[in-house]
Design a protein around this nucleic acid. Structure first.
Length: 415
RNA sequence: GUGGGUGUAGCUCAGUUGGUUAGAGCGUCAGGUUGUGGUCCUGAAUGUCGCGGGUUCGAAUCCCGUCACUCACCCCA
C-alpha cells in the first residue's frame, strides 16, 4: 500500500490511464454538441473573489456558507476556489457590456467543494455546463433542456430521467415561502429534526426530504405552484408545450427544488437510476443574477462528469478495445539502436505511431511489448537487414512477415 | 459537520480459537538453445500486514488512538 504522501488530498483524485481516455472522449463529444448549438467555450479562472459567489448563489446556501475552499492572498484579498461554474461566467459576461446580451457560452472544468466525500461526490469534481443569456422565454428553456438531453444521448446514456418544475417568478418567491411555511408549521411536531431546521432556513427543502414521515406530510400539501401567480404557471405550461414539440420526455415533479438561490421559473434535474444516493447527473434552470450594477437573465445547466462516468459504467457502456493500430520497432541488434531510434523518429514525423524499447531487452521481450502495445505492424531490423538495406515487416493481425525495402515499408505503413 | 463499514504484495483478496521464515490468483520481469507477440510451461522479484501506542512469553489477528478509503445522513452536479 502506498504511503500517505503519495496520495492526493482527501476527496481529490488523479485521473490517469485507462480512465483518462473516457474523459477525453466525453469532453470531445461535449464540445461537438455545444458547437452545433452555437455555444462557445469560456475558461474562467479557478480562483475568484469570494464575493462573486456570495451574491449570486445565495448567502444561506451550504455551498457558500461552509463548503468553499477559501484563503487570503498576500494582498489580503478574500479568494475562493470556485465551487460551481455559473457565477464566474456571469462575472465574465457582466464585464462585456452589450456584447453579453445574447451570449451562449459553455465551460468544462474542475470545481471545488469541501464536503464529506461519498459515491458521486468528490471535493474536486468536474462539471460541464452551458449558459444562454436572454429575456425570459419558454423556447430558450426548452432548447436548453434539449441540448442537455442531446449531450446525454451523444455520450450514450439511455436511462436518465428528466424532472421539471417551476420556482415561480421573482415576485412569487416570498408568497411561496410564506405559504409553505404556514402549511408546514401545522405539522411541525411530526417533521424530522432536519426539516424543523429547514422550516426556518430553507422551507422548500422540506419538499424533497427523504424521511418517510416528512414525505407523507408533503403529500397532503398543495403544490408550490398554488402560491404562485398565474403568470408563473402559464410560463411552465408554455415550456412543457414546447418540450413536447421537441419530442423530449420529461416528468413534472411539483416537489422538485434546486439548491442555489438564483433560480427563477423553470428548474429541472436529470437523475440516473444507476447511481447511489447522489443520483443527479445534471441540473439546470432559469435564473437572474446580479453582478455589480448589472443583472443578467438567462438559462443554464451543469452536469457532473464523474457522475456521467458512473452512469455510463452502470449501463455498461464502456468502449470496446481499439483495433490494432500503430507500429512497433524491434531491434535485433542493440548496436544499431542509433539507426532504430532515427527510424522511429522519421516515422513519427510522418504522422505514424511508433514505439520501440530502448532498454536493450531480448527480442522475445520486445515482441511481447509489441503485442501488448496493440501495434498492427512490427518492423524488425538487425545486422543482416542493415547489410542488405531491408527491413522485416510483420503483420500482427495474421502473423505474416515479409522482407521489404525502405520505399516498400513506407508505402505499406502510410497507406 | 454526524454515523456505519474497511485498511495484508502494483491489483483482487486468503490468513483457522493470538504461536515461530505472512500466502494465492492476476499483473510485472526472466527463461523454455542460435534473431519473433498474443496460448501453454518453468522460475524470480516485490510487503515497515495504513500509522502510533497498549495487553501478552508471543499480535496481521485482541484493546485504544490516529490517518486514509468507502457508504449513508446533510448538501448538491
Amino acid at each position: 500500500m502506498g504511503s500517505e504522501e503519495f496520495q492526493p488530498v482527501q476527496g481529490m483524485s488523479d485521473i490517469a490511464s485507462p480512465d483518462i481516455a473516457v474523459w477525453q472522449l466525453l469532453e470531445q463529444q461535449a464540445r461537438g454538441v455545444f458547437a452545433r448549438y452555437g455555444f462557445s467555450e469560456v475558461r474562467t479562472p479557478l480562483v475568484e473573489r469570494k464575493s462573486v459567489f456570495e451574491h449570486s448563489l445565495g448567502d444561506t446556501t451550504d455551498v457558500v456558507q461552509k463548503e468553499m475552499y477559501q484563503f487570503e492572498d498576500a494582498g489580503g484579498r478574500a479568494l475562493v476556489l470556485r465551487p460551481e461554474g455559473t457565477a464566474g461566467m456571469m462575472r465574465h459576461l457582466a464585464g462585456m457590456g452589450q456584447d453579453a446580451a445574447n451570449a451562449r457560452v459553455y465551460y468544462i472544468g474542475p470545481m471545488f467543494r469541501r464536503e464529506r466525500p461519498q459515491a458521486g461526490r468528490k471535493r474536486q469534481f468536474h462539471q460541464c455546463g452551458a449558459e444562454a443569456i436572454g429575456e425570459t422565454n419558454a423556447h430558450a428553456d426548452a432548447e436548453m433542456i434539449a441540448l442537455q438531453a442531446h449531450l446525454l444521448k451523444e455520450w450514450g446514456l439511455q436511462q436518465s430521467v428528466i424532472k421539471i418544475n417551476t420556482r415561480g417568478a421573482a415576485a412569487d418567491r416570498a408568497a411561496v415561502q410564506r405559504g409553505m411555511q404556514e402549511k408546514l408549521s401545522a405539522h411541525r411536531e411530526r417533521l424530522c429534526d432536519d426539516c424543523r431546521r429547514r422550516l426556518e432556513v430553507n422551507v422548500l427543502r422540506v419538499l424533497d426530504c427523504k424521511n418517510p414521515g416528512c414525505r407523507e406530510i408533503v403529500r397532503t400539501l398543495p403544490p408550490m405552484t398554488a402560491f404562485m401567480s398565474d403568470e408563473a404557471r402559464t410560463y411552465l405550461e408554455e415550456v412543457l408545450r414546447v418540450i413536447r414539440r421537441l419530442e423530449l420526455s420529461v416528468d413534472v415533479d411539483p416537489n422538485l427544488v434546486r439548491g442555489l438561490d438564483y433560480y427563477q421559473h423553470t428548474v429541472w434535474e436529470i437523475s440516473h437510476p444507476g447511481l447511489g444516493a447522489q443520483d443527479a447527473v445534471g441540473a439546470g434552470g432559469r435564473y437572474e443574477i446580479s453582478m455589480g450594477n448589472r443583472t443578467l437573465r438567462g438559462v443554464g445547466f451543469a452536469m457532473g462528469l464523474e457522475r456521467i462516468l458512473m452512469a455510463l459504467a452502470s449501463e455498461k457502456k464502456t468502449p470496446e478495445p481499439a483495433p490494432l493500430h500503430g507500429i512497433w520497432l524491434v531491434s535485433l541488434d542493440h548496436a544499431l539502436l542509433d539507426i532504430h531510434l532515427q527510424l522511429a523518429q522519421m516515422l513519427r514525423m510522418r504522422g505514424l505511431d511508433c514505439g520501440l524499447d530502448l532498454n536493450g531487452r531480448s527480442v522475445k521481450a520486445q515482441m511481447r511489448a509489441a503485442g501488448k502495445s496493440g501495434a498492427r505492424w512490427v518492423i524488425l531490423h538487425g545486422a543482416a537487414e542493415d547489410e542488405k538495406g531491408v527491413f522485416q515487416l510483420k503483420d500482427m493481425l495474421d502473423g505474416t512477415q515479409r522482407e521489404v525495402t525502405m520505399v516498400e515499408l513506407l508505402e505499406q505503413l502510410q497507406r
